[in-house]
Amino acid sequence: MATIKDVAKLSGVSVSTVSIILNGQAKARKISEKTQKKVLEAIKELNYNPSVSARRLRSSDKEKYTVGVYWAIDFTTGFLARFIEGLQTELVKSKLPVSTVICPFENNRLENESGLKNMSTYNAVIIANTNIKDQEFLNENPLPIPAVLINRNSEKYHTIRIDNVKAGEIAANHIFRKGITDVGMVIQKNSFYGMQERGKSFYNFFQRKGFKIPDELIVSVKNSVLGGTEAGEYFFRKGRIPRAVFVDSDVMAQGLIHFFNKNGVNVPEDCEVISVGIGPSEISKYFMPSITVVDMPLEKMASECIKLISEILEHNIDEKKHILLDTELVIRESSPLL
């Protein structure tokens, strides 16, 4: 059985660094996203599962509940960093008797996670970023412990999700109000459910207005800065730079804008860029030019998770609760107001 020392050795960091990341304190201790990702990948490779019983022995008597936070390992660490920050902020603020354990999982393999199948590992779980196969597993195999699903629809579990349809419409309406109808899209390969909803909503908005976005202006790339750069290269190869581009993550938007800047395409004068805000807001705010985003309320989502789980555990709630959160349009330089 793998130990925390094995994780530290494989990821090339200290045991204390691994412990800080597992306890959701990475941002507070200024541990880089790159280091966090290495540790999470090592945890998954070694199938390391922190000993909850040991954590309880080390913790204070006030920590009555332990909650597992299951997170798809191939999803952006920026999303995870914001979510964990929200969890920790709410726990400190409310002084709730809850501790959390980060549990990375590989998409299509959620059914292999033993911590979901018994009542002795966790008191409750938060499950984020499931794909279609993992969602089918959850729907067909009710878990023995309370579970809250993040950004997913399900009548069998408690859910907290973002209004992804509205998010796509907000981005589309911002562009359309300026009279811009020559629009492209950059979406993630093998995208998650929420991304698919936002992309379809953006696309359908323009179609309802009588403007179909051409297939040649929709590019699918990896959700990374490099992926965004490849999207820029794609538009150049096509010889077709749209007047505005909707990008479904700020990480990809950074790569796209970087490529445009290096190749003589001025943002926003030649091409406006509007993105979904998933990573830390400082990145989009201080990029050159700063990036207009439809910001995902990840900290609010995390806060609502803790409140809901506390209510479930303290009051034995059976009726499933479903919380829907709005998004906010943050105007910056890459796509300014009229």
Results as ranks from 00 to 15, higher is better:
Val98Glu: 12
Tyr157Ala: 05
Glu319Val: 11
Arg198Ile: 00
Lys156Phe: 01
Phe206Asn: 08
Tyr286Leu: 12
Val39Thr: 10
Lys262Thr: 04
Lys262Glu: 07
Phe236Arg: 12
Asp295Lys: 13
Asn151Val: 07
Leu313Phe: 10
Ser334Asp: 10
Val52Lys: 07
Thr130Asp: 01
Gln196Ile: 14
Glu216Asn: 12
Thr77Met: 14
Gln196Ser: 15
Arg109Ile: 02
Asn261Ala: 04
Ser284Lys: 07
Arg243Ser: 15
Ala81Tyr: 09
Ser11Cys: 12
Val186Glu: 04
Ser11Asn: 06
Pro142Phe: 13
Ser53His: 08
Thr66Val: 13
Thr292Trp: 09
Val7Cys: 10
Asn223His: 05
Arg208Met: 12
Lys300Thr: 13
Lys166Phe: 04
Ile187Phe: 08
Ser53Met: 07
Ile150Val: 07
Val69Asp: 02
Met185Val: 03
Phe176Tyr: 10
Gly184Ala: 11
Asn139Tyr: 08
Thr76Trp: 02
Val7His: 08
Gln188Arg: 06
Pro142Asn: 13
Asp295Ile: 10
Cys103Thr: 09
Ile278Phe: 13
Val294Met: 05
Lys133Thr: 09
Ala26Ile: 04
Lys62Ser: 11
Lys321Ile: 07
Asn49Arg: 15
Pro142Val: 10
Phe246Trp: 05
Lys262Phe: 02
Ser32His: 08
Val15Asp: 05
Tyr193Val: 06
Arg208Pro: 00
Ile283Gln: 14
Cys305Gly: 07
Arg208Phe: 11
Tyr65Lys: 14
Gly179Gln: 10
Leu298Met: 09
Ile4Asn: 09
Lys64Trp: 01
Leu338Asp: 13
Glu106Lys: 15
